[in-house]
Simulated assay, not measured.
Amino acid sequence: MAQLAHRRSSGIISLAFNQEQDCFACCLKTGLRIYNVEPLVELSNFTLEEVGEVLLCEMIERTNWLLYVNARRPCKLMAFNARENCLMAEVSFKAPIRAIKARKDKVAVVLNSTIQVLAIPNLNRVALMRIPTGCRPLCTIATDATAPQLLAAPAHRKGCVQIIDVSRVVRGAHSSSPAVMNCHQNDLVCLSLSPNGTRLATASERGTIIRVFDTGTKTPLHELRRGSDYADVFCINFNATGTLICCVSDKGTMHVWSARGAWTHLAAAKAFPDTRAQCGFVNDNTAIMICEDGSYHKFTFASEGNCHRTDFDMFLQVGDDNELLL
């Protein structure tokens, strides 16, 4: 009960890793904080007076650019320079922003029935994808600058995903017809593209299986068994090379698999249930879980199946370190 009470009082609204998974943004009722992952260090701390109550934030790699949404102006995307502590630009939409996903040169903004893709840094619209009205605000974009600029989101048919290349646009900033992939029989709750965009991992509302697809051939590659009980999958992430996959659900356990060869289950690392969490990789044998109760967990794992928690902290209690500023 103490843990649940702490989660409710943490003031955290959302958490998000940057594209390299070496930093994360913590959106708070009292502002915004940016952390280095390894070692765990607070890089920046913006107060309620500076940025307001922040609902969503995406870092642009490990740069000074932050894209965020303020609770008092939920229809506006703010572009903020963290080093200069100033607002660089803002874009207004006709509906509240439900999610944002960024790469170095693009940001996908999820609204109620569309995803609008903006170019960075001018924030002009370059692509548009239509999504089912009221579906979960799911979106994933390939982040490797040398790879096709693929964007994936729920399609209008239940359990299906639509994929477009947002670099291939036509006049009027409307993208060509997306490719549609049949992934699950139930509604989608989570999806993730590998950094180079060649693989797509998905989970449905059952949450028992993570399915992995080849985005080039649109064919299934493998099914990864998370568990037999239904679960709400909060996050799926690939490592930088697309050879590892991790996921975390409301069961409070992070799973790690090899995404090649025998597709081995490498780790099942228990943290805390009843709190939303994000997971990512430090390297090929270290994974991180950050939770909305303010906890930070680092696990090391090996191909033999051994897994150990090697670090734990409450990141809201970690002070800033000016030597590691962005």
Rank of each mutant, 00 (worst) to 15 (best):
A95R: 08
M289T: 14
C27R: 00
L191M: 12
C75V: 02
L221I: 14
R171P: 01
V256P: 03
G242S: 06
L244H: 14
L4H: 11
Q185G: 15
S258R: 15
A302Q: 10
A153R: 03
Y68E: 01
K29Y: 09
C190Q: 13
L326R: 05
T202I: 07
L111K: 02
F299C: 09
T241E: 13
A277M: 14
F17L: 06
E323K: 12
A287R: 04
I245V: 15
N124V: 03
R171D: 02
W263N: 12
N64Y: 06
R83M: 12
V282A: 12
K158Y: 06
K251S: 12
V54G: 00
Q185F: 15
H222W: 07
F301H: 04
N18P: 05
F80L: 02
E61W: 08
F80C: 01
E90R: 10
F213I: 07
V166S: 04
L32A: 01
R136G: 12
P137G: 08
V318T: 13
V166C: 13
A271E: 06
S249C: 14
T215E: 04
S14W: 01
F17W: 03
L244P: 06
S228K: 14
T217A: 11
M88C: 08
E38R: 11
A277E: 02
T198E: 13
F46A: 04
V117T: 04
H222Y: 10
V166K: 05
F46K: 02
Q317W: 05
E38P: 00
D313G: 04
G134F: 07
V51Y: 00
L55M: 13
G261E: 09
L224P: 05
C27S: 07
E304A: 12
S303T: 13
L15M: 08
K76I: 10
D293S: 14
E61L: 10
Y230Q: 13
A82M: 15
A99Y: 00
A127S: 14
L221N: 11
G134M: 10
E90H: 12
V233D: 06
M181G: 01
A152G: 07
H265R: 14
T215H: 09
H174R: 13
